Simulated assay, not measured.
Amino acid sequence: MNFKLPDFYPPDFNKANLKNAPIARFEEVIKPGVAPDNFHATSIFPEYLKLASDNWTLLTESRMDCVVVKKSDNTLEVREFRSLMPGDMVAVGRTERGEDGIFVYTEGFKVPDESEELFAFRTQVTRESSFSIDYDQLYQLLDYERKNGFVVWVLGPAVVFDADAREAMVDLVDKGYVHALLAGNALATHDLEGSVFSTALGLEIYSKKSVHLGHYHHLETINKIRRVGSIEKAVETGLITDGLMKKAVEKKVPFVLAGSIRDDGPLPEVVADVYQAQDKMRSLVRKGTTIMTLATQLHTIATGNMAPSYQVDKKGQVRPVYLYNVDMSEFAASKLANRGSLSASAILTNVQDFVVTVARGVAKLRK
């Protein structure tokens, strides 16, 4: 079975509420970082603004909890509050069914029979849910996205605490299933520690046995990387000989390591300023067509907030953005489901087992 993107069914703008809707209104920003009163806040769904009597314009790149700015060339841009500057023209209006010339559209990917939809909307997953069909659908999706999309992986350090999972993640990068990587200091540090000392957080990466002075290993690793200047330099000099970060460098997979108040070191590439980190993350998330979030609740929720439920390609075609959350905790899955996403799916399992299973599953499709 070959994966096929679902069709997008655009709104019927001849319906009375849209045909007779007023032109969208915009008001000027006076103070930097402050939107006008009654600003319109964006959602994860496709949104159309009426710019002329016969012109409903779709936001091509969106993000929830931002505002819409009309630029001088009449194009629309979704922007964070902190990026607003005096003179920017911001859409105003709190209704969403056309009353203010703004239409939030939630039904673009719906099909008559929900049972036929490959990626059904699931909100009530638990640890007792079965996921066999989810895995099979995911293999097909990743195989499609490898050449046709942009797959963003958001990883917690647990992914590299296990020798087989670490190697499986390396294989996914090597085979082209990873187009961008988002993580924190810990994921990269413990992956690099695995190369330098064959441990993760001081435990032998395969046997999980404690080693003498192993609690120093992640700090020693950070110090070694800081001494040579960067992860890329550490790979070039032969300090790092295997692992996820090495493969990402070799395959030129862009990555963002967002800093945390509890970071050790950190590694040279870690972005300490939270808003710079957010901007760098969003520069990759906005390209994402499938987003895989594994065992990192804060990064998962942050990325989910940056990701719309759709993308518009260069030909103007609208497609869904698929977002998977893999975690042992139901909390993270519930947070994503509560976003109201049409395409958020959860798989509740050990992420190390998940990565190994996915690597094997997509490998079978290549045979």
Rank of each mutant, 00 (worst) to 15 (best):
M1T: 10
F8A: 08
K15R: 15
I23N: 05
A24V: 13
R25E: 12
E27C: 09
P36W: 00
S53T: 09
D54E: 12
L58Y: 07
E61Y: 09
N74S: 13
T75A: 05
R82M: 13
R82S: 12
S83N: 13
P86I: 01
G87T: 06
M89D: 04
A91P: 02
V104I: 12
S130I: 11
F131T: 04
S132H: 14
Y139S: 04
L142Q: 01
D143Q: 12
R146E: 00
N148D: 09
N148M: 11
V151M: 14
V152H: 02
V152F: 02
L155A: 14
L155S: 14
V159E: 01
V178G: 03
E193H: 02
L203K: 05
E204I: 00
S207G: 04
H212W: 06
G214Q: 00
R226D: 07
G229M: 06
G238K: 02
V249N: 00
S260C: 08
R262I: 06
V270E: 01
Q276I: 14
R282A: 08
V285C: 09
G304S: 03
S334N: 11
S334D: 10
S343F: 08
I347F: 05
N350M: 07
V351E: 03
F354N: 05
V355W: 02
R360G: 11
